[in-house]
Structure formats: C-alpha cells, structure tokens
Design a protein around this nucleic acid. Structure first.
Length: 262
DNA sequence: ATGACGGTGTGGCACCGA
C-alpha cells in the first residue's frame, strides 16, 4: 500500500477576506498540510474553529495588518517553531512543524519571505539578512529532520523561466542576482524545487498583479515554491500550480501550489 | 516615468505588496 501525502502553499493576502475561499479549495483539494502566508491578522482573530470543523487543526503566528503565517493540517503536528530561532524579528514570517504521517514524520517549514521593495532599499538589506538567517537555520533543521519540505512565498524568481519579462525586469526586485544566489544557496543545502522535477508549460506562474489585467494577460511570476529535501526527493510524485482560485471573486493575487509525496 | 489593484488602518488618505 502506498501512502500519499499532499502539502500545499498559498499566500492568501488577508485570511479575513479569503477564509471562505480556503475552505472551498480544501473541500475540492483535501491536502494533508496547507501553509498559509499573509494572514494579515493576529492569532486572536484566526478562525481556528471553522478549519477544525473542516477537519484541519491549525497553528499560527499572526501579526496585525502585515505578514502572518499558519499551518493547517489533517495530521497531528508536533514541535511547532515560530520564526527563525536566534533571529530577532518583529515580523511574523515563519512557522514550522513536524507532521506525523503514516509514512513517518515530515518537517514542514512554511515561510513568507521578505519582499524587499527595491535593491537599494533598507527593506532589501533586511531581506538579505533574513535569507542568511533562514539558510543557517535550515542547515541545522535538515540535520535534525532529513525529511523536510520548505514551502511558501519566496518572493524570488529562481530563474528567467519564472518571470513574464526576465529581460525587462533584470536586476529588479525578485529578479536580482543577490536574491537568486540566496535561492541557489537553499538548493545547495540539499533541497530540490519539486515543480521543476516535471515537464511544465512555459510561463507557469503563481502570482499575477491585480493591476492592468495581469492574470488575463498572464503577466506573472513564479514566486511560490515547494522545496523537498534529498531524503524526500525520490518520493515526489507531482507538483502543480492551481490557477482556478485566481478566477474567484475577490481572489488572492497568489494561487496554491501543491506537492504530492508517496 | 507613473500608476494601475487590493487590503488594512485610520481617516478623509498613506502604506505596503510584487
């Protein structure tokens, strides 16, 4: 018998607005674990009960107005970690937990990576510091949890295929060499971009600007990723971007990405 | 070059996102 485990990521851009869409999506796509980003609410406003009723327990690191991350899971979650240990951060960007599946424990790290605004900004400097801290922590996590999945909104295009206009946007935010070097450094820890393990259509994106008919014109970026550790790589069965929720009324600007493990 | 759209908080807009 083959145990299947599905892990997904979705930047919902306000859980207050999007909770009904998340519930609808889970009803159609009953993944085992869903990492959410950009909750834009504090934990006291997190709708634990509605997700419980749908069969999902939740753990969350909230923040008013900005950021905020959560893990929804149908399986028990243990050893929850909020933000990067030893990295002082007022912003709620990371939540990790160990999912106890029938096939053994899987460490799921869910991140809302720093946007960075512009390469010459203070926010970009923070992005670099944050990425450095994430990398150092994940190196340790991987020794403790060889079976690890890193999901989230990375706010980085891994390479030119992940942008609708790689030439025109060269060295702008999400496209800089410095950001891509950090992405490669994560890969060098022993992680693999599950999406690129499979043949994919050209111009596959996970985010489209609300403005200027971005989705209709497919002017988007692939910035939402599911990275699997070397130990899990042989078990990757599929990785798909679901564009359907982007067609909803009042959609998030991001769509869910799901990785399937055997 | 700018702003376009959307969410939030607070206030009559500004800030942020990507």
């Amino acid at each position: 018998m083959i145990e299947i485990m599905k892990i997904a990521t979705w930047n919902v851009n306000s859980l207050t607005v999007r909770a009904p869409q998340v519930l609808d999506w889970l009803a159609d796509n009953p993944v085992d674990v869903l990492g959410l980003q950009e909750l834009k609410l504090t934990e006291d406003k997190f709708p634990f009960a509605v997700f419980e009723a749908a069969g999902y327990s939740a753990c969350a690191l909230g923040q008013k107005t900005y950021n905020g991350v959560a893990l929804l899971s149908r399986l028990p979650i243990a050893d929850v970690q909020k933000n990067i240990p030893g990295f002082e951060d007022e912003q709620a960007r990371v939540i990790a937990g160990t999912v106890l599946s029938a096939a053994g424990p899987v460490r799921v790290v869910n991140g809302y990576f720093v946007n960075g605004q512009a390469p010459d900004s203070d926010k970009f400097a923070y992005k670099m510091r944050w990425l450095t801290a994430l990398q150092a922590w994940l190196k340790l996590e991987l020794t403790q949890y060889p079976r690890l999945v890193l999901v989230g909104d990375f706010n980085i295009t891994a390479d030119d295929r992940d942008s609708y206009d790689p030439e025109g946007l060269r060295e702008t935010i999400h496209h800089t060499t410095a950001e891509r070097d950090h992405f490669k450094a994560l890969i060098s820890l022993g992680l693999t971009d599950a999406f690129r393990q499979f043949e994919q259509p050209e111009k596959s994106f996970s985010w489209w600007d609300y403005r200027d008919f971005g989705f209709r014109r497919n002017r988007g970026l692939r910035i939402d990723y599911t990275l699997v550790s070397d130990a899990l790589k042989p078990q990757v069965q599929a990785c798909v971007i679901d564009k359907l929720p982007r067609k909803n009324e009042r959609p998030s600007d991001h769509t869910p990405v799901t990785v399937t493990l055997s």
